[in-house]
C-alpha cells in the first residue's frame, strides 16, 4: 500500500517576530498531494505567517516545517512552490517594470510556461497586449491575475495563496475556483489558501484550518458552521454565509 505523501507538514511549530510574543504556536498539520485546504482566521491571527514559514521567509522558533518531506531550511527546489503574497502592490511602487519582464524573471525552470501561456492560464484576455504594459498601471483585478500567473509559471506542485480574492470581482472569483479545481485534477496541484472569503471558495475544498495564533480547528467546513469554534477563533459571533454557485 502506498503511503500518502505529505506535501507540507508542521510539527508543533511556534514562530515569533518579537522575542517572547508568539505569532503562532502549537501548530501541527499536514497537507497531502492534490489536497486543497483553507486557512481561516482573523487579521493578525497568523495565516500569512504560516504561509511564509512554508516558503522559508520566517523561521520557526520551535518545531519543524517540512516541504515535500524535507526540512524547509534545507529545501532548494523553490520552483515546486508557487506563492502569491498579500499586499504585493507595494513591491512595485516606483518601479517601471513591465508584465513581460516580471513574468520572465519569475520563470526559473525550462519546464515552466512562457509568459503569454501563463497569462492565458489565469484567464487574461489578449495576453500579448498586456505583456508590454507597466505593472503599476494595471487594475487591481489584472494585477492579481499577473501575480497568480507568476506563481503558476513554473508549473508548481504546491500553490500558496494569501488572500487571493481581495481585488477580484465575482467573475474573477468564479474563474479562480475553476482554475484551482482544474489544476488539482490535471496537475495534481496541492494548495493552501489563506482567506476571509471562504464561502466564495468553498466549492474547491472542504477542509479548513482555523488559526488565531494557534491552530484551533482542523476539519470539514460543515463541522465548523454553527459550531462555537468560529466564535472562539474570531472572539465574537461570526456567521458563515454559503454562496450558491
Amino acid at each position: 500500500m502506498n503511503a500518502v505523501k505529505n506535501v507540507v507538514s508542521f510539527e508543533d511549530v511556534a514562530i515569533s517576530y518579537v522575542r517572547g510574543v508568539h505569532a503562532v504556536s502549537n501548530v501541527s498539520f499536514s497537507l497531502g498531494e492534490r489536497e486543497v485546504v483553507f486557512l481561516l482566521g482573523p487579521n493578525g491571527g497568523g495565516k500569512s505567517t504560516i504561509l511564509k514559514a512554508i516558503v522559508g521567509l520566517v523561521r520557526p522558533e520551535r518545531g519543524v516545517v517540512r516541504v515535500f518531506g524535507q526540512d524547509v531550511r534545507r529545501f532548494k527546489e523553490w520552483w515546486r512552490i508557487g506563492y502569491l503574497p498579500q499586499n504585493a502592490v507595494s513591491y512595485f511602487e516606483r518601479m517601471p517594470i513591465s508584465v513581460g519582464e516580471f513574468l520572465h524573471a519569475s520563470k526559473v525552470v525550462e519546464r515552466g510556461f512562457e509568459p503569454e501561456e501563463a497569462l492565458e492560464l489565469v484567464g487574461v484576455e489578449n495576453p500579448s497586449r498586456i505583456l508590454g504594459q507597466s505593472i503599476n498601471g494595471l487594475s487591481g483585478g489584472n494585477f492579481q491575475k499577473i501575480l497568480l500567473a507568476a506563481s503558476l509559471i513554473n508549473r508548481p506542485e504546491l500553490l500558496l495563496l494569501d488572500e487571493p480574492t481581495v481585488y477580484l470581482d465575482q467573475g474573477g472569483v468564479v474563474a479562480l475556483i475553476g482554475l484551482l479545481g482544474r489544476l488539482r485534477d490535471e496537475w495534481g496541484l496541492s494548495a493552501i489558501i489563506a482567506t476571509h472569503d471562504i464561502a466564495a471558495l468553498s466549492t474547491v475544498a472542504s477542509r479548513v484550518i482555523c488559526v488565531n495564533r494557534g491552530a484551533l480547528f482542523d476539519g470539514d467546513i460543515s463541522d465548523l458552521v454553527g459550531s462555537e469554534q468560529l466564535c472562539n477563533i474570531y472572539g465574537f459571533h461570526v456567521y458563515l454565509v454559503r454562496h450558491g454557485h
Binding site: K52, V55, G56, L57, K76, W78, W79, I81, Y83, P85, A88, Y91, F92, M95, I97, E101, F102, H104, A105, S106, K107, V108
Partner: peptide
C-alpha cells in the same frame, strides 16, 4: 542576471523563493 536582479529589486522575499 537580469531576471534575478529584477526580482531582488522588486522584493527580496519574492527573490528568495525563486532561488
Amino acid at each position: 542576471n537580469f531576471g534575478r536582479v529584477l526580482l531582488y529589486t522588486v522584493s527580496e522575499e519574492l527573490a528568495r523563493i525563486r532561488g
